[in-house]
């Protein structure tokens, strides 16, 4: 009832909130088994990538130390060092992307995927892919120009324009999805504030 001051009981009444949701609300579906499997796969990918980063780090450090100290494998390992660097870079890429994807999957499980935060995560994924791709090519060109003959060492033939095209396509997909999520978040807010 309304009291003399005109104030009413507008607090979140437990009795009311304990009742089933109003019919206009769509119950979130939440995550399914595929979401859980994907989460497990991404966790494993992250762990493997961390191991690769550590191994590559040691490998590069050893090669640099060996080279500086005039070891027997000094010049011979330059292509390998650059390759290790690229593999380490790819692993860092996986660690970050898997982290962001795990964040998105967490919101899917919670039943609230259409958040601005997810749009930001996807945009970051796109940005990381482009950045890593640029760094990769910088490393390859640096190695090519100053140290290694591709024909003789054969260290870089796997890095082709086709790979970069795929990476750029992945970045474009991430940016497009970010826009979709942004629009989804806007519509979700619109729906939440429709009585």
């Amino acid at each position: 009832m309304v009291d003399k001051t005109g104030a009413d009981k507008t607090g979140l009444d437990d009795k009311i909130l304990d009742e089933p949701p109003a019919p206009e609300f769509v119950k979130p579906k939440g995550g399914d088994s595929a979401t859980s499997i994907l989460q497990t796969v991404l966790h494993i990918a992250r762990i493997i990538s961390w191991i690769v980063v550590v191994v590559m780090g040691f490998s590069i450090a050893f090669a640099v130390f060996d080279g500086l100290s005039g070891g027997a494998s000094g010049d011979k390992n330059l292509a390998d060092v650059v390759n290790d660097l690229l593999q380490g870079l790819a692993s860092v890429l996986i660690i970050y992307i898997a982290g962001y994807l795990l964040g998105i999957l967490k919101t899917i499980k919670a039943g609230t995927p259409f958040e601005q935060e997810n749009a930001m995560r996807l945009r970051k994924i796109g940005r990381i892919i482009i950045t890593v791709e640029a760094v990769k090519w910088a490393v390859v060109l640096f190695g090519f120009l100053f140290f290694v003959q591709i024909e003789t060492e054969g260290g870089y033939e796997v890095y082709t324009i086709g790979d970069s095209a795929m990476a750029l396509l992945a970045a474009a997909i991430a940016y497009t999805l970010a826009r979709v999520f942004e629009e989804g978040a806007r519509l979700k807010q619109e729906q939440d504030y429709t009585i």
Binding site: M1, V2, D8, K9, T10, L12, D13, I16, L17, P21, A22, P23, E24, F25, Y193, I195
Partner: peptide, 20 residues
């Protein structure tokens, strides 16, 4: 002479939505 809680019960809209 009606409270928001009462209205919420009668209309079938959550009190949170009515507050919005």
């Amino acid at each position: 002479g009606m409270s928001l809680t009462e209205l919420s019960e009668k209309v079938g809209v959550t009190i949170a939505n009515l507050s919005i």
